[in-house]
Amino acid sequence: MTIEIIHSRSEGTLIEGSAKGDGVYEIVRRHGFRYMPSIGQLGIRQSRDRAAKTWYINAAAAALREAGFEVNVTIDESNRRSFAEAEADRVERAEGRAERFSGYADNAANRSESAYQHGHQVADGIPMGQPILVGHHSERRARRDVERIDHAMRTSISESEKASYWSGRQRAAEGYEQFRKAPRRTLRRIERLQADLRRVQRRQREESAEGSGRDVTNQELVIRHEELTEEIAYWEAVIAEAEKNGFKVWSKADFKKGDFVRRGKTWFEVLRVNAKSVTIPHIHNGIGGGVVRASDNKLDGWTWLLTYDEVFGRRSAEEMEAALAASTTE
């Protein structure tokens, strides 16, 4: 029997040629492989859109060969999905989860209601205030009814908790795309990705220099460079769409010393303008809202760096004075 261990970025790491009961699973599960019911194959979970985990693959292949299997290993890192395709697939799967969790929640709610009604039906057959008559021929049935009522109520509560749990999972799945594309979160993601891209570019320059002028390339660095460039462009398009819909992307150009910046419900005077943030009096000065000036800093001069993705508004010193004057006359 020939076992094929195949990795591509588009499909992840999968095993082909194995059948239930052939002993392959028992061998490879010790090396990171699991059975994935959604596709009916053995593979490494969360290996799509990632570089091959060669230490797992090589260890599994060696163990299979030792057990008498013929094993072929194929790794094709160039076969990959675009980031847009991968993200669309993630959104589609989230929608599928939301639909599935909705069904789970409905079923649990129905079981809870059914158990509740059953318990009340049993209780309705017992006269109000009727005690258990010890020694009477009705004692056994009365005790059995108490147990049935208790079991029904416990089942109803348990199923109600399950319904709440699955409803929560449903809401999370439904909000996946909105969560991913939230502008402020997306800005932070872009910054991290740009830092990753700079590190990759630095490593590529170092490898080229070590090659003494020869075209020295590392395949994984080249692919990672392409992936990061693609992903950054995707999220920048998300921000551009958000800006069309009224979202403001703040930057150094929007502020000067003495302006006021809003964080949450509090306005802070800008002490210094930096490339990626503004320096303000420490946020503990602003508990409860209002306006915090430089002179209001009561924490031994402590300051706070407020990054531009955390900014919710700006006022010049003149605009702030006018707003405060208007609020006192109202």
Rank of each mutant, 00 (worst) to 15 (best):
D196K: 13
F260I: 06
D106S: 09
E99S: 04
A108D: 11
R80E: 07
R205Q: 08
I126Y: 07
G286P: 03
R100W: 08
K181E: 05
N245Q: 15
R50H: 03
V278D: 10
S160A: 13
D215V: 15
S208I: 03
T74Y: 14
I157P: 01
D254G: 08
R214C: 13
F312Q: 14
Q130H: 11
H225I: 02
Y234K: 06
A326G: 05
E227C: 07
D296C: 10
I190V: 10
L271P: 01
R30T: 14
G211T: 03
Y176R: 06
K276D: 14
E113A: 12
Q121G: 09
G119H: 01
L306W: 08
G12Y: 00
S8Y: 00
A109D: 02
Q130V: 04
W302D: 13
M128F: 05
I15L: 08
N218F: 11
E66N: 07
S208F: 14
E26S: 08
R314Q: 10
N79H: 09
Q117M: 14
R30P: 08
A88C: 12
R203V: 10
L14S: 01
W55R: 14
A195C: 07
H136M: 10
D300H: 15
R93Q: 12
S102V: 00
P131Q: 04
S78Q: 13
G68T: 14
E174S: 12
Q201I: 12
T229E: 09
L193H: 04
V122A: 06
W267D: 06
I75D: 13
A86D: 10
Y104R: 02
S78H: 10
N285R: 02
R45E: 00
L228M: 07
I223M: 03
R262V: 09
I223Q: 07
N297Y: 11
N110R: 12
R48P: 00
I75P: 09
V73W: 00
A88H: 12
V311W: 03
S160I: 04
Y308A: 06
N107H: 04
R34T: 14
E11M: 09
V91S: 08
F255C: 05
Q170R: 15
R81P: 07
A237Y: 00
R202C: 03
F69K: 05
E85G: 05
L306Y: 10
H284S: 15
T155G: 01
F83H: 13
L197Y: 06
N72E: 15
N245L: 15
A60T: 00
T279A: 06
I223D: 00
S114I: 03
E77D: 07
E210A: 12
I6V: 14
K248P: 10
G175K: 03
R314S: 09
R169G: 00
S316F: 11
K20H: 11
G290T: 08
E269W: 01
K252E: 13
G96L: 02
E227F: 09
E139I: 00
T54L: 15
G258T: 06
E147S: 13
V216D: 15
P37R: 06
A105Y: 10
G129V: 13
Y234D: 05
R143K: 11
R90G: 07
Q130T: 05
A84R: 13
V238P: 02
R100Y: 12
R205A: 12
M36E: 10
D49G: 03
A322V: 06
N274D: 13
R100T: 15
G43I: 15
K53H: 09
I287Y: 11
G40M: 01
E174V: 04
S138H: 13
V261T: 04
K276R: 13
A233N: 00
